[in-house]
Amino acid sequence: KVYQEKEWSNLIDARTAPISLSLSYLTALHAKLVYLLKRLTPEDMVNSYIHPDGNVNVSVAENIGKYAWHSNHHFAHIKSLADRMGW
């Protein structure tokens, strides 16, 4: 199933848990992703799957690029807010 971020953000932990839990989670997740991605072969990068949102074929390489863009996009929002608020 496609990720429903609005529903996820309504969960109790998303609304009330210390932000440090989310930051620790993202740090660990990205460390694991880097470990995995550095070990992919060129053959691995051309493997693909059917994405449930739009029923389109997506290669591993394309998905990595989309995830990187998406992560940078969120980071830019956070940095912009931090700059605006003087944090």
Results as ranks from 00 to 15, higher is better:
81 L>Q: 03
2 V>A: 11
17 A>H: 02
71 S>I: 15
16 T>L: 05
12 I>L: 11
74 H>Q: 02
60 V>L: 05
20 S>G: 09
79 K>E: 06
60 V>R: 08
87 W>H: 10
84 R>G: 07
62 E>N: 08
3 Y>K: 14
51 H>W: 03
67 Y>V: 10
14 A>I: 00
18 P>Q: 09
50 I>P: 00
49 Y>W: 12
67 Y>A: 07
46 V>Q: 12
71 S>Y: 15
8 W>D: 02
13 D>F: 15
74 H>S: 00
68 A>T: 13
21 L>C: 10
81 L>D: 00
34 V>I: 13
87 W>S: 08
56 V>K: 15
69 W>N: 00
58 V>T: 03
13 D>N: 13
26 L>K: 11
82 A>V: 02
52 P>D: 01
36 L>I: 14
65 G>A: 05
30 H>G: 13
52 P>T: 08
52 P>H: 09
56 V>Y: 05
83 D>E: 07
64 I>H: 03
52 P>V: 07
13 D>V: 14
85 M>H: 09
78 I>F: 13
31 A>R: 07
71 S>K: 14
51 H>Q: 07
15 R>G: 05
10 N>Y: 13
19 I>G: 09
40 L>G: 03
27 T>V: 10
66 K>D: 01
26 L>E: 03
66 K>Y: 06
28 A>F: 14
68 A>E: 14
36 L>M: 12
3 Y>S: 11
28 A>L: 15
48 S>T: 12
79 K>A: 10
77 H>P: 03
74 H>D: 03
69 W>A: 00
15 R>L: 13
25 Y>D: 04
71 S>P: 07
72 N>D: 08
86 G>Q: 00
58 V>F: 00
20 S>Q: 14
35 Y>P: 09
63 N>S: 06
60 V>E: 01
52 P>G: 06
9 S>L: 15
35 Y>R: 14
41 T>E: 02
59 S>H: 05
23 L>G: 04
29 L>D: 03
42 P>I: 10
45 M>Q: 06
69 W>R: 07
32 K>T: 13
53 D>W: 03
37 L>Q: 10
3 Y>W: 13
59 S>Y: 01
64 I>L: 01
53 D>Q: 04
47 N>V: 07
18 P>V: 09
8 W>S: 08
47 N>H: 11
38 K>W: 05
70 H>G: 02
52 P>L: 01
42 P>V: 10
76 A>M: 11
79 K>R: 14
8 W>L: 13
13 D>P: 10
30 H>W: 15
51 H>A: 04
77 H>F: 08
61 A>P: 04
27 T>C: 11
70 H>W: 01
57 N>T: 13
56 V>G: 03
27 T>Q: 12
81 L>P: 00
70 H>E: 01
73 H>L: 15
